[in-house]
């Protein structure tokens, strides 16, 4: 165990992130990463933030939620409305804070009763909550009903989204590797034993539920300012399932998996783009194939870590590297 935050692993991570960022900027200035690819990169970033939040709820605490798009919608609309009154990046931050506050409140009020349910029942209840949020938005004047809000300030840029992704990764992974995260994992492992070990199960379930929901609202706000338009129909069950696919595909509980899966799915989508309508069939087939060959997701429960990283030494003759 390290003594404080100023240790060599923190330094390695800063270096890794900086190199990755420089690589992206390099590719942009070399005109390899054109505007279209950049927009896909932004979407991948937003998906990472959404999926990290959902992974906290589903993969770490084990509470199956299908209402993620609802919280995303709250974040998106809060940002969109705030940006009408306050311009620029301050407006976005203010909108995100307002969205986070509303989301936290709703997640708290909904979480307390709903998180008593388990498995399928919880999934249906959270699905209901997501739909209720969407339908309320569809009927409010301030959200402009079905027409939605257009011409939202476009503030999204690679550095902005990148910054938020890094922030989301830091908070979720710090949470996971703390006593609070251990409590949540133990609830997923065995709720009864967890309570018998002195864990206040309700408290941690609601905590991770709110935490995940806030990340969804941030994802929604960034979505709004990236696409400049929000409509209620964007935030239906399909959106929740898209996020769920990233979590399951990457490996339940693996934050590394979520990041890798968001990239992998973004790239698969991109490669299939020229195929037109058959794309969705192939995309689904790719998902099925990967779930057959890697039933625990791409990464299983693996987490990238500099601490556990060792250079593999060749062990066999003939210069082969032993895996």
């Amino acid at each position: 165990m390290e003594k404080n935050i100023f240790n060599k692993y923190t330094f390695y991570w800063i270096l890794t992130v900086a190199l990755f960022y420089l690589a992206i900027q390099g590719l942009i200035s070399a005109n390899i990463l054109r505007a279209y690819y950049q927009s896909i990169l932004l979407l991948i970033g937003i998906n990472i933030i959404l999926a990290l939040g959902l992974n906290l709820i589903i993969g770490i605490t084990g509470q199956f939620s299908l209402g993620h798009a609802g919280y995303m919608a709250i974040g998106a609309y809060s940002a969109a409305i705030t940006l009408k009154y306050v311009n620029g990046i301050q407006g976005l931050i203010l909108g995100m804070l307002i969205g986070a506050l509303i989301t936290a409140l709703i997640a708290f009020l909904v979480g307390l009763p709903v998180l008593r349910l388990k498995g399928d029942y919880l999934a249906i209840a959270t699905l209901g909550v997501g739909e209720i949020i969407r339908i309320i938005i569809l009927n409010l004047d301030i959200t402009n009903k079905a027409a939605g809000i257009n011409n939202i300030d476009r503030l999204a840029s690679i550095p902005l989204i990148f910054g938020f992704v890094i922030l989301a990764v830091i908070v979720t992974s710090n949470f996971k590797r703390s006593a609070l995260g251990r409590a949540c994992i133990s609830i997923f492992q065995d709720e009864i034993a967890s309570e018998a070990m002195g864990i206040n199960v309700t408290r941690y379930k609601v905590m991770s539920f709110i935490f995940g929901a806030i990340l969804a609202s941030f994802g929604g706000a960034l979505f709004a300012t990236t696409y400049s338009v929000v409509r209620p129909e964007f935030f239906g069950l399909n959106q929740s399932i898209d996020t769920l696919v990233i979590v399951v595909f990457g490996g339940m509980g693996s934050l590394t998996g979520t990041v890798v899966a968001a990239f992998a799915l973004g790239i698969i989508n991109l490669l299939l783009q020229p195929l037109g309508d058959t794309r969705m069939i192939l995309y689904a087939m790719a998902l099925i194939a990967i779930m057959i060959f890697r039933p625990k997701g791409l990464m299983g429960s693996f987490e990238a870590s500099w601490k556990n990283f060792k250079l593999r030494k060749p062990k066999l003759a003939h210069g082969k590297v032993n895996e």
Binding site: S178, A179, L180, R182, A183, I185, S186, Q189, D190, I192, A193, S194, A196, M197, G198, I199, S301
Partner: peptide
Amino acid sequence: IRLFKDLSALDNVKIAMNEDA
């Protein structure tokens, strides 16, 4: 037996000590 079966023996004990965090 109701151990946290995907976690190490050490983590099982750490969770029991969680209140001390």
